[in-house]
Simulated scan of single mutants.
Amino acid sequence: MSDRIEVLKTYKTYVGGNFPRTESGRYYKVYDANENILANACQCSRKDVRDAVVEAREAQPDWNNRSAYNRGQILYRIAEMLETRKAQFIEELETIGYKTKKAKAEVEASIDRLIYYAGWSDKYQQVFGTINPVASSHFNFSMPEPMGVVNIWAPEDRPLLGLVSVMAPVIVGGNTCIILASEKYPLSAISFAEVLNSSDVPDGVVNILTGFRDELLEHMTTHKDVNAFFYTDPDIDQEQRKQIDENATLNLKRVRRKPVEDWLSEKAQSPYYITDFQETKTTWHPVGL
């Protein structure tokens, strides 16, 4: 009898709380550390980006209107669910070349990072909001409010910790997002989508696509119903940076570039990552009413 041919899993995307296949019908091969074919991943297209933006925009008002405490509870729940599947993610990272110790450190740091931002969910408003002195009989308050929908490029070389670190500060502040997973190592991102799907995260708050950055850069940066674009890879080439900045001017999209060399360091987490995706809104209220 001939040797059995292994059936490779085809990982789907995560859009609107569902796991659809790419609209384009295209896939690309994902390899392990020894250059053996590990699985197939969706090669997403412009239509996939547009579908994800529609879901994110629809979900944003409800997510923003939830209490900050509730958003923190949900982030904590994501951490709980990731903790229960820690062994799976350690094994997945090992297949792409991580040593066991490093893989364990990355998964545990991802859990801790979710808890870190869950703790900030109902506190950053007081830290970064103010009561302003004014020369009239009014109360004047300045408070941070979310930008809306954020497109994110997850870090290329940290498929789990990097993704968690860019997602958490964006959504804890009331934004929704579309994340393009690591091009070379996308499987942890879709496995993490399964964690999100069982963690009380409302449909559409986090949407995860896979595919080629060169192909999707234009679609993610020109979409006029997106309010911000976030990327962290320090080695992104100058031509891509120029294209991102130019495309963002079409609708005054905010661009946040925060290169991170070490995702395990304290510098990779900060409440300022939350305020990067907030706008300051000021309210006047007459005294005595």
Rank of each mutant, 00 (worst) to 15 (best):
R57T: 06
Y117K: 04
F277Y: 13
V53P: 01
L180M: 05
R57A: 15
N18C: 08
E239Y: 01
M81R: 15
P169I: 12
V134H: 07
R256A: 13
F212P: 00
K101T: 13
Y69N: 10
Y14L: 09
R257H: 13
I37S: 06
F89G: 05
Y28P: 09
E145R: 04
S182Q: 00
R66T: 11
L250K: 13
A103R: 10
M220D: 01
R50W: 07
F212S: 07
Y14V: 00
A33G: 03
N151L: 10
T13D: 02
Y273Q: 13
S199Y: 09
D262L: 00
A193N: 01
R71Y: 07
K9P: 00
S165V: 06
R71L: 09
Y273K: 15
Q73D: 08
R66W: 09
E55I: 07
H223L: 08
Y116T: 12
S198W: 04
T221Q: 00
T95S: 11
D157H: 11
A52D: 00
S137F: 10
I78C: 13
R57V: 06
D235C: 03
D51C: 02
E94Y: 03
Y116S: 12
E261M: 09
D203T: 05
A33V: 05
N18F: 09
K253N: 07
Q243A: 15
L160P: 01
T210L: 01
S265Q: 01
I115R: 15
K101L: 11
D112R: 14
S2K: 14
N132H: 06
T282I: 14
K101M: 12
M167P: 03
S45L: 06
V53L: 06
D3E: 09
R254N: 08
F89R: 11
I152A: 03
V195W: 07
G16S: 01
C177Y: 04
K253Y: 02
P271D: 02
S137A: 15
L209R: 09
K242Q: 12
T275C: 13
R57S: 13
V30S: 00
